[in-house]
Structure formats: structure tokens, C-alpha cells
Simulated assay, not measured.
Amino acid sequence: MAGLKEEWSAGTAEDLVKDVQDLGVSIRSRTVTDYVEAGLLAPPLYRKSTQRGSDRRVFPPEQRQLFYELTRAKLRSPLPRVPHRTMIPVVLLMWCTDDTVVSDAQARRALRTYARNAGISSAGRRRTTAAKVVEQFAHPLATPRQRRAAHAWIRDGEVTRKPNWDAVADALSAVASPWRARGLPEIVRGFGPPDAPVTTDHVVAMWELDWQVTQKLAVEEVSEAVLRRAREEHRDTWRNYQTVRSDWASRAGTMASLFDLPDDQEQAARQRVNGFVTLLGDTLGLARPTFDRARTRASMRRR
């Protein structure tokens, strides 16, 4: 969001509605309330009146401008209707990178909305996602049956939102090491850049970690203090990641797309927020037991 302009001042919900009328947008005050509930805006501030009671609550200048800029962003979208949840990553990106506009309390509510909508997609997109994942890991000798099994377990996890991690990991390892089906021992393959290789078990562990974090965020189980601590760690790791991103991409082979920096602002915001959620899993102490389970899973297959 651009720097705060002098003409922006505190305003009521009705003022926010009037602001966007200049953009040709006609909305009701109820939309502002919906934004607050979703975490796109912080709750308006209480004002003590000189009379008995209080005056109407007002939004600070930063939040008033935020509402205006979010409305402009919706107008730039090619979609006829832009759900509130699709704008959440933009607000969370602002919180990740700046301390002056989005409060911790607002970010916590926005993360709740983000988590409750994680994994929601159309049947066509689920099929496309599953196919892309399987092709990234599949060995040329992987059979159609092995590929179909991996597709099915990934799609089932997205549909039910309760993935069977052991089954997903086993199915992906089967397409990566297809000779297992003939009774031969598994050869664990590393993917990505040589100095940061990942295995199918590592990838599934990352998915499981993110799933655990979103379960907690969906019920606002993570305190603001923990979110702040994770944000500071994320800022450091993100800066370090930018210094190696292009080098890793150049040496990642078929996994190079994982290190792409999206041109689209909304997709770039989503990538940054996904990175924060993963790091939050480590802050919450969920990472170590999750990766321990992944290692146990892998060792059991090789017995």
C-alpha cells in the first residue's frame, strides 16, 4: 500500500463506503463489517463522547486507506466477483513486512480466515494439482497404476481435508522408486538443488506440518506473542532465502518452478504467507515431531 496520504483521516464505516463511491463502487456498511470479521480490516476504535455514552466508532486513517486500496485491487481483478478470502494474503503480506498498518490482532483474525479456506478448490484444480505433484516426483518407469494411486491419495486428502499422510507418502515414494513393486529395495531419490535436496517423505512432512498449523490458526489457538516472534524469524529467513533463490532455481532441474518469484502481486503475497505458515510450525514446536514421523515412515519401508 502506498504511503499514508495527508487527506486520509479517521472515519466511520459510512465514511469508508463514501470513499469508494469515487471508484464507481456501490456497497453497504455491512461490507465493512464483513471485512472486519474476515480480518481484512481491524475493528473500529471506541470514542468516548463528551455526552453520555460514546460517539460512533471510527477506523484509523491507515485502515481507511487500506479499505480503499483493497477495493481498488478488487476492481483490477478479471473475476466478476472476488471473494474476501482471496484478498487475505495481501493483508497478511503487509503485516509480514510492515508494523504500521495491520495490527497483530487483525493479522490473527486474517490468519483464521486464511486457515479455514486453505485447500478449498474446484474438482478440476484438484486434479491438476495432483497431476503436477505426481509428475514432479515420478520416475520414468513409474506405472500408470502407481501414478493413479498417488493422484487418488492426494485428491482424497484435499477433498476430505483430512489427508492420510502415511498413504500419501507411500504412494509418492512408489512413483519415485517404482521398482519397489517388483520387490527390489527402495532407492531414496533427492529432488531440487544439490545443496538443498528434498525427498518425497520430506515434502509430505512439509505438507503435514502446514496442515497442523492451519488447524491451530483456524480456531485462533496461536497467541499474538507467538505470531510476532514467528514473524521476526520469518523476516530474517526470507531475506536469506532471497540471496539463494535464483541459484537454487538454476540447479533444481524439474523442481525449478518451486523457486519462482511470481509476477502477480496476489500470488507473490500467497507465497510469502505460505512461507510464514511453515516457519510458524517450527516456532510452535511441531516441526521436529513431524519430521521424526517422516523418518520413521521411510525407515519402515526399507526394512
Rank of each mutant, 00 (worst) to 15 (best):
P140D: 10
H139R: 08
V134N: 04
A142F: 02
A149F: 02
A138Y: 02
A130R: 02
A130K: 01
R126W: 11
A142H: 04
P144Q: 12
R127P: 03
S122I: 13
T129D: 09
H139I: 05
A150H: 00
A138I: 01
A150L: 01
Q146K: 07
I120H: 08
T128Y: 10
K132T: 15
V134D: 02
T143S: 12
V133N: 01
T129L: 14
R126Q: 11
T143D: 05
R125F: 15
I120N: 02
A152Y: 08
W153D: 03
V134P: 02
H151I: 02
R148H: 09
Q136W: 08
V134E: 02
H151N: 09
T143Q: 07
A152H: 10
G124W: 00
A149E: 01
T143E: 09
A131C: 05
H139L: 07
P144C: 12
A131R: 08
S121K: 12
I120W: 14
I120A: 00
R127V: 13
P144W: 05
Q136H: 12
S122W: 10
R145D: 14
R147G: 05
A130C: 08
I120Q: 07
Q146D: 09
Q136I: 09
R147P: 04
A138M: 04
F137G: 06
A130N: 06
R125T: 15
L141I: 06
G119L: 11
A138W: 02
R125H: 15
R127K: 12
R125I: 15
A149Y: 00
R145S: 14
V133C: 05
A152M: 09
K132M: 12
R147N: 11
R127C: 06
I120V: 13
A130H: 01
T143Y: 03
K132Y: 10
Q146I: 13
A131Y: 01
R148W: 07
A142W: 03
K132A: 15
V134W: 00
R147M: 07
F137M: 10
Q146S: 13
S121Y: 14
A149P: 00
R125S: 15
T128Q: 14
I120S: 00
S121V: 15
A152F: 12
E135A: 10
W153C: 08
A138T: 03
K132H: 14
H151D: 08
V134A: 07
A131P: 00
P140F: 13
A138R: 06
E135R: 04
R126L: 13
R148L: 14
V133W: 00
